[in-house]
Structure formats: structure tokens, C-alpha cells
């Protein structure tokens, strides 16, 4: 059994290395498959993966609906940006900034989690939505000299390169995966599946929910730190409600609780939005319509292809029309 897990982690390590080398080769000026414009998309994609994996732990695995993820991202973004601007953008400082951003978000997540995680379902969603907005408005109005108010912070050194986002996302993935496949991960799933049963089995609901929330917001902060070094200008309005919805969309599209699904969905949605950029006016309409279609096919328990077959098979269609079920 131990050998098996070692082989597995070796395979994982090798595939990460292969992915890294492959993307690097595609980015080379001589190959130019991923040109500088696409490179920015690739960076955004990895930031999205980090964000969505964190939210997946909270919403998908532990079942606590959160609509305030962008708020925690902004905490990470602002604290990391401030740190780098006050010091320098040497590698050590960038790593420190990422850590500070992540920890700041996790700390606020902890404070906010204690009261809000008593709520369930829709109520929790509304509460986190409100808290996300509160974070945004506080950032906008507190200490204009330090945080720049509505205009935000500009002139942040562009410290985020491909390596930063790639390894940021890989570390996030490994941590979430290891957590999921441990006793803590099972406890998180148990809380999602049945709170009463989980509690009767000796699981402290509050602790597990706060744990998931803190880890999730930690990675939101990390993603925020990577984001501010990627865009160079951050404004409170970048971290509004719509950003939270964007992240949630990735998680839902990839499947709640499915971490590989989250990665694939983050890639797919970014590719989709690039592919649609030639249709400037109708772009958002097509994008939205595609999302509706994907959700229609994806919803329920059967895999996509089973559903397609069911929908397009005539005999079954007729049968279902006449049978009373």
C-alpha cells in the first residue's frame, strides 16, 4: 500500500513537470503557440484555478455556500500589493507577500467564519454575499492615502510571472487534494452529506466548517496576491459580487466537490472566453447561452454522454411522453 502511494505521488510529480515544460516550450518565441497575448490568459487561468479550488473546498466539499470569495481575494491582493510596494519586488519579498496576503485573508476568513457559519444554506449564501460587499466597501472607504479609495492601488510591480501562478496553483491543488483524502476531508464531506449524522459520529461541526473556510480563504488570499502582481492596478470594484459569481461558476461547472473538474472548468471557461472574443457584441450572449446549455446537460447525476443519448433517442422520448411517470 505504501509503495502504491509513492508511485502515485511520483506519477503526479512527473506530470506536473511535464505540464510545466510543455507550457514553457509552447511559450518560447520560436514556437509561439502561446503568444504574449495568450500568456496573459494562461496566467489568469492559473489564478482562476487557485481561486476556484479554495471555493470548492468551502462550497463543494464541505457544502457551505459562500458568495463572498472575491472579498477575501481582495484582502490578499491589497495586503500583498502594499507589502511589495513598501519593500521591493525581489523573489523573497514576493514569496513573503503571497504568504502575507494568504494569511491576512485566512485570518479575516476565520473572524467572519465564526459567526456566519452558524447559518445554513440560503442564509449563509446571503450573509457571505453581504460580507463580501462589506469588505469591498471598507477597502474603498478606509484610509484613502493607504489603499487609494475607489481609484485603488496602481503602480504595483508586476511580480507575477508564469512560475508564480503555476506553482501557486500546483501547491493549492496538492494541499486541497491531500486534505480531501485525509480524515479531515472525510469529515468535511460528512458535514456536507448529513450534519446530524456527522455530529453524532463525534465530528465538531463548527471546527470542521471553520477549518474549511480558513483553508479556502487562505487560497483566495494567495490568488489575490498573485492577481495584484499580474494586473498592476487593483480597484475595489474588481472584487465585487460578479467576481464571486465567476468563481462559483467554475466550481459548479466543474462539479461540486470535484477538484479535477474545477481545474478543467477553469481552463475551459478561459478558453471559451478567448474563443468568443471575435464576436464582440454577441460575445456575452453566446457565453451565457453556452453556460445555460452546459448546466442543463450537466445537472443531475448521470454523466454528460448518458444524458445526451437519452435526450436524442427517439424511442425513449416517445415512451416518456406516454408513460405516466
Amino acid at each position: 500500500m505504501k509503495n502504491k502511494s509513492i508511485t502515485k505521488s511520483l506519477i503526479g510529480l512527473v506530470s506536473v513537470a511535464v505540464a510545466y515544460v510543455l507550457i514553457k516550450i509552447l511559450m518560447l518565441p520560436q514556437v509561439n503557440v502561446i503568444n504574449p497575448f495568450y500568456q496573459t490568459i494562461v496566467l489568469k487561468m492559473f489564478i482562476d484555478i487557485t481561486l476556484a479550488l479554495g471555493l470548492n473546498l468551502i462550497t463543494g466539499i464541505t457544502g457551505q455556500f459562500s458568495l463572498g470569495h472575491a472579498g477575501f481575494m481582495s484582502i490578499g491582493a491589497y495586503s500583498a500589493a502594499l507589502f511589495v510596494m513598501k519593500t521591493s519586488d525581489s523573489l523573497l519579498n514576493v514569496l513573503l507577500a503571497a504568504l502575507i496576503g494568504a494569511c491576512a485573508a485566512a485570518f479575516i476568513g476565520f473572524l467572519i467564519g465564526i459567526p456566519t457559519l452558524r447559518l445554513k444554506g440560503d442564509y449563509l449564501a446571503i450573509a457571505t454575499l453581504g460580507l463580501g460587499e462589506i469588505i469591498r466597501i471598507v477597502v474603498q472607504n478606509v484610509d484613502q492615502n493607504l489603499l487609494g479609495g475607489a481609484a485603488g492601488l496602481s503602480g504595483i510591480p508586476l511580480y507575477t510571472n508564469f512560475e508564480v501562478v503555476f506553482f501557486g496553483a500546483v501547491i493549492t491543488f496538492i494541499v486541497i487534494r491531500n486534505l480531501l483524502k485525509s480524515s479531515f476531508g472525510r469529515a468535511c464531506i460528512a458535514v456536507r452529506e448529513d450534519e446530524i449524522a456527522a455530529e453524532s459520529m463525534g465530528i465538531n461541526l463548527t471546527n470542521i466548517k471553520i477549518l474549511a473556510f480558513v483553508v479556502g480563504t487562505f487560497f483566495a488570499g494567495l490568488a489575490g496576491a498573485m492577481y495584484s502582481g499580474y494586473v498592476g492596478v487593483i480597484q475595489p470594484k474588481d472584487f465585487g459580487f460578479m467576481k464571486s459569481i465567476d468563481i462559483l461558476m467554475i466550481v459548479v461547472l466543474g462539479g461540486l466537490g470535484n477538484i479535477w473538474g474545477t481545474v478543467i472548468a477553469a481552463i475551459a471557461l478561459n478558453v471559451l472566453s478567448v474563443a468568443l472574443q471575435d464576436f464582440a457584441e454577441v460575445r456575452m450572449i453566446i457565453y451565457a447561452a453556452l453556460l445555460v446549455l452546459i448546466m442543463l446537460f450537466k445537472s443531475g447525476e448521470s454523466p454528460l454522454f448518458v444524458k445526451l443519448r437519452r435526450i436524442f433517442s427517439l424511442p425513449k422520448l416517445k415512451l416518456s411522453m406516454f408513460s405516466k411517470k
Partner: peptide, 23 residues
């Protein structure tokens, strides 16, 4: 145990037992 079964439906049989051991 519960009158209306309350298992963790989307976990494997052995994982259901392991949740009992989490404490």
C-alpha cells in the same frame, strides 16, 4: 443509528466507518 437511515451516501462504505473514527 437513526430511524430513517442517515448514512454518508456519497462516501464509500469503508469511509463511512472512518468518519466514526475521526474523533
Amino acid at each position: 443509528t437513526f430511524q430513517n437511515i442517515r448514512l454518508f451516501k456519497n462516501l464509500s462504505v469503508v469511509d463511512n466507518l472512518k468518519i466514526g473514527m475521526h474523533k
